[in-house]
Nucleic acid binder design. Structure first.
Length: 204
DNA sequence: GTATCGATGATCT
DNA sequence: GATCATCGATACC
């Protein structure tokens, strides 16, 4: 009889309280688990941010991952403890934010899109647009909106200011698909997001 | 609406 | 010298 169990799980999921910090073991799991469970989590940096609606998982066995070729100075944070921020510079122009995951070394989740909720005016000024659909839809845009750079945020723990993470709502209907913008490992369906959300960088 | 392309610089080969 | 986990502008349907 799975019916009652499924109903109970759904109930427990919707009862997940707001303003509740993530469990200390949250990031000590494989990046694919973390990536799915981050959907619906509120992320703020110095009080500015929103609810995560899109993520991608990368691990050390994955040719698309920065960790694939082993540790270097640039990716060292990926080989450190989980629940820390790994920030990298993309295409010479943008910053991108990842959350380091465990249990194995060299895994992380790329935060690709937020539904803007906190400090929308500040984000609009930083992004030079008031269109809420373009504030945090994409990893580079998101970092611009939250003022994330490697110099100020790479390697910082996620359970202390300026970061704040808490579950805003249940993960909801999580869709998955191919990751965006990669050539190697492109078939691996490790992109996750809130199905139907208008705040995605791209639909699923 | 979708497709393509240039910007731009750190990192690694 | 090549690569790149992107974005925004432009061109064309």
């Amino acid at each position: 009889m799975d019916g009652p169990r499924i109903a109970l799980n759904k109930l427990l999921e919707t009862m997940t309280p707001d303003r509740h910090s993530l469990d200390s073991g949250f990031f000590r799991r494989h990046a694919t688990d973390v990536a799915q469970n981050l959907i619906g989590v509120r992320l703020t940096v110095d009080g500015v941010g929103g609810v995560i609606v899109e993520t991608e998982a990368y691990d050390r066995t994955d040719p698309a991952s920065h960790a694939f070729r082993g540790p270097t100075l640039a990716n060292a944070v990926m080989f450190g403890p989980p629940a820390h921020a790994y920030v990298y510079h993309s295409y010479g122009i943008h910053w991108c934010l990842n959350f380091v995951c465990g249990p194995e070394l060299g895994a992380a989740v790329l935060i690709r899109a937020l539904e803007p909720t906190d400090g929308v005016e500040i984000m609009s000024a930083r992004r030079r647009t008031t269109d809420p659909l373009k504030l945090c839809a994409g990893p580079g845009r998101l970092c611009q909106a939250l003022a994330i750079t490697r110099a100020s945020h790479n390697g910082l723990p996620l359970d202390e200011p300026p970061f704040a993470l808490s579950r805003a709502r249940s993960a909801g209907n999580v869709a998955s698909g191919r990751r965006i913008g990669i050539t190697k490992g492109a078939e691996t369906p490790w992109r996750f997001g809130l199905a139907g959300s208008p705040y995605l960088s791209r639909p699923f």
